[in-house]
Simulated scan of single mutants.
Amino acid sequence: MFVEKMILWTLQHIEDWQSAESDGVLRSVNFNRFSDEDFKRAYDWMRVKMSERIGPPPTPNSYPIWAWYQHRDSNNRKPDLRQIAFDLPEQEYVRVEFEMPNSHVLLSDFDMWHFVLNYWYVGKDEDDDEYFDRLQQDHDVSYYDQPPLPVPNLHRLIEES
């Protein structure tokens, strides 16, 4: 069955949600809340992938809104704010349900997204992982220490993985 729209859920910091309520616009990730350049780098990578697959963003400086289509399984689709994964100290979040056309959504795997956030290589299998580890050793670099890697070929391999 083809579905033209998806129901999604996003978790928004309470201040961002209050801003959206007052001006009627739900904005993408607020980088003022995050000082980590790697976080921005990962979202820049996601913007490129989204542009390739679903077209350019509405404005050149806009970022995607992270949302859940299915949190745990088909019986537990919406995220539960009471779960420990969302229990961020001294921060209050709200869960917002909204609907988006399929053509505006890029689905991804939450666990695999952490490979992008952490600048990790995704090997096809154990041999591929070992091959990449040897390449790093040969160049005396580690993606754990130096994102982005100063060796262009290795950086490209990480992004392609």
Results as ranks from 00 to 15, higher is better:
71 H>S: 14
89 P>F: 07
16 D>S: 10
29 V>A: 08
31 F>G: 05
56 P>G: 10
37 E>W: 09
34 F>W: 14
57 P>S: 07
55 G>E: 06
20 A>F: 02
59 T>A: 14
84 I>C: 13
93 Y>L: 12
45 W>Q: 15
79 P>T: 01
79 P>M: 01
18 Q>Y: 13
53 R>T: 11
76 N>Q: 11
90 E>F: 15
42 A>H: 05
44 D>F: 10
99 E>M: 09
15 E>M: 07
46 M>N: 00
106 L>Y: 03
73 D>C: 15
25 V>L: 14
92 E>K: 13
110 F>D: 12
84 I>T: 13
44 D>A: 14
111 D>Q: 15
100 M>G: 03
79 P>K: 02
109 D>T: 08
57 P>I: 01
45 W>R: 08
72 R>A: 09
31 F>V: 03
11 L>M: 02
62 S>K: 05
51 S>I: 09
109 D>W: 04
29 V>K: 11
19 S>R: 12
67 A>Q: 03
17 W>V: 04
17 W>C: 06
73 D>E: 11
19 S>Y: 03
108 S>M: 07
100 M>A: 02
12 Q>N: 06
37 E>F: 13
77 R>G: 00
92 E>A: 08
25 V>W: 08
108 S>C: 09
81 L>A: 09
104 H>Y: 04
68 W>Q: 00
91 Q>R: 15
24 G>S: 07
23 D>L: 09
19 S>C: 15
86 F>Y: 04
96 V>S: 00
104 H>L: 14
34 F>I: 03
64 P>D: 00
33 R>E: 11
98 F>Q: 06
112 M>T: 15
107 L>I: 04
68 W>H: 08
77 R>C: 12
40 K>N: 04
65 I>Y: 00
14 I>Q: 12
33 R>D: 08
107 L>T: 06
11 L>P: 02
43 Y>K: 03
51 S>F: 10
61 N>Q: 11
52 E>N: 15
22 S>G: 06
64 P>K: 01
77 R>A: 05
48 V>C: 05
39 F>G: 03
84 I>L: 15
70 Q>D: 02
71 H>D: 14
86 F>V: 01
32 N>T: 10
74 S>G: 04
51 S>K: 11
30 N>E: 04
54 I>V: 13
85 A>T: 10
49 K>M: 10
44 D>I: 07
29 V>W: 01
87 D>V: 10
74 S>P: 08
29 V>H: 01
92 E>G: 07
52 E>F: 06
86 F>A: 02
89 P>T: 09
39 F>S: 06
67 A>E: 00
100 M>N: 01
108 S>E: 06
87 D>A: 08
90 E>T: 13
110 F>A: 12
81 L>R: 09
96 V>D: 00
96 V>F: 03
100 M>R: 10
83 Q>T: 15
43 Y>M: 08
98 F>C: 01
24 G>Q: 02
31 F>C: 01
91 Q>A: 13
76 N>C: 11
68 W>C: 00
78 K>N: 14
22 S>C: 07
95 R>S: 04
92 E>T: 15
81 L>N: 15
99 E>G: 11
36 D>W: 13
14 I>Y: 11
39 F>H: 12
24 G>W: 02
27 R>W: 09
53 R>C: 09
79 P>A: 01
79 P>D: 02
